Simulated scan of single mutants.
Amino acid sequence: MQFVGSESDSNSLITVISSCPQSVALLVGQSIHCHIIKVVVDEDVSVMNSLVGMYGRCGNLDLAQRIFYRMHRDTVTWNSLISAYTHSGHSSEALSLFDQMLLEDVEPNSATLVSAHSACSNQAALNHGKWIHNYVTEIGMEFDVSLATALVYMYAKCGPLEISREIFNAMPKRDVISVFGYGIHGNVRDALEIFQQMENSGMKPNEVPHAGLIVEGTNMFGRMIDYSITPTLKHYACMVDLLGRSGNPHKAEAMISTMPIAPDGGVWGALLSACSIHDEVEMGERIAKPALETDPENDGHYILISNMYSSVGRWEEAERVRRMMKRRGVRKRAGWSAIEVGEEVHVFMVGDRSHPLSVEMYEMLEALSRQMEELGYAIESGFGVCHVE
């Protein structure tokens, strides 16, 4: 179009920006952004919304935010940035932006509320999620399939499975329902019951979930072919994890050897974890090589191998793995946890003492540790702790 001298309009610009594959979206998008400024269409809200969305998808949240605050904003603008924050793991910022949207009297739509509930799910912000649920009810917005499913997932992820199930049962129409919430809480039978209901209704699943029971899980994996679903690496990783954790790491290794696709770090990591759990050191040594070759930046692989050696007193090998990790520049990612108190979510890192109540919290931990020792509990010392600076 540019080559033959035709002028681009807002529709063509939006189409090009939206259709850019993510691998080249930032480079192409920046070029289009420059063109938009040159031809003075940077006041077109729809065009600028597509730019906010594009920069958000590429993870360039600073640029997305700068455009957001310099333009005339509509509901789609807010949705684009809230969604970008949510999918980039910045759930707290997403919820703050949603609150700001309401303060500016911008009316959210279903897409806004789906993103907000996803942010609540990511951060386990149950109270905030409940508040948004009540807000939707108060304004009389219809619970479409997407919004109801987001609520089901949010309550399941945050804990109150009974509320999640109530919403699920009340849905007049359902699409492919994720049973992830039941799986992570160990409610395997409920997860399988919902899956059976989905099959009985004639609905075709798009993924077969791994529920945690070896017979049922294996049967469900085998039934994927009935739905013309080709197992992906994630499905194989789930099956390897299922077999490995249930005490069948050799069966898991046999499954990997028959895979029609090359196993990735997730598949090898699942088997490596099983070797660590069941003290299969010899197999673990064999699995360590392909695990590190396919995913050399995964700190968890090095730590599993090192701890596996430490558990059987092979300290030199454990130290060798730690040195390898340090030499390759792989750093151990700090563990973190979050807890919601009132309307505020508190996030803690390992060894974090920045919280204003950290002194009282550590005193409580010490008191609990003493009580555990008095009751006869002892810290498991079979594994060496891997600290890599």
Rank of each mutant, 00 (worst) to 15 (best):
G29A: 06
R331Y: 02
G29N: 05
G181S: 09
D99W: 02
H90M: 11
G56A: 12
R70Y: 03
N11S: 12
G217V: 13
A378W: 00
V136I: 15
N307T: 05
T15H: 08
L81E: 04
N187K: 13
A291G: 07
H185Q: 15
H87V: 04
C158L: 13
P160V: 07
P231V: 07
G140T: 06
I277W: 01
L292C: 06
L192G: 02
C120W: 12
A116F: 04
M224D: 09
S115K: 02
R328M: 11
R165E: 13
H33D: 03
L61R: 02
A170G: 01
E253D: 10
P356M: 09
M154G: 05
G129L: 14
M171I: 06
R353C: 10
L161A: 12
R320D: 08
E319Y: 01
S257K: 15
H133C: 11
Q30Y: 05
R174Q: 15
E316Y: 02
M308S: 11
M283H: 06
H72Y: 07
A270G: 08
V28F: 10
Q123W: 06
P356I: 03
K157G: 00
S10I: 00
I139T: 13
Q22Y: 00
E366D: 13
A288H: 05
L13P: 00
A254R: 05
E253Y: 15
V341G: 00
M220G: 04
S257Y: 00
S121V: 06
A237G: 14
Y236L: 12
G222I: 06
R286N: 10
P108V: 08
M154A: 09
S311F: 00
R353Y: 05
A338W: 13
H133L: 14
C158Y: 10
L151P: 04
T218R: 14
C34W: 03
G129S: 07
Q371K: 15
G59A: 08
V350Q: 10
P108A: 12
I82R: 05
G266H: 08
A191Q: 07
Y85W: 08
M71E: 01
V341T: 05
Y153M: 10
W131R: 15
R353D: 07
E216I: 03
N49G: 04
K326D: 06
G342A: 10
G284C: 09
M154K: 11
I163P: 01
R174P: 03
A211W: 12
H90S: 12
I32V: 15
H210N: 14
E366W: 12
V16I: 15
Y377E: 07
S146D: 15
R174L: 14
K332I: 02
S46H: 11
S88A: 15
S96D: 07
E389I: 03
E360Y: 03
H250K: 14
N109A: 04
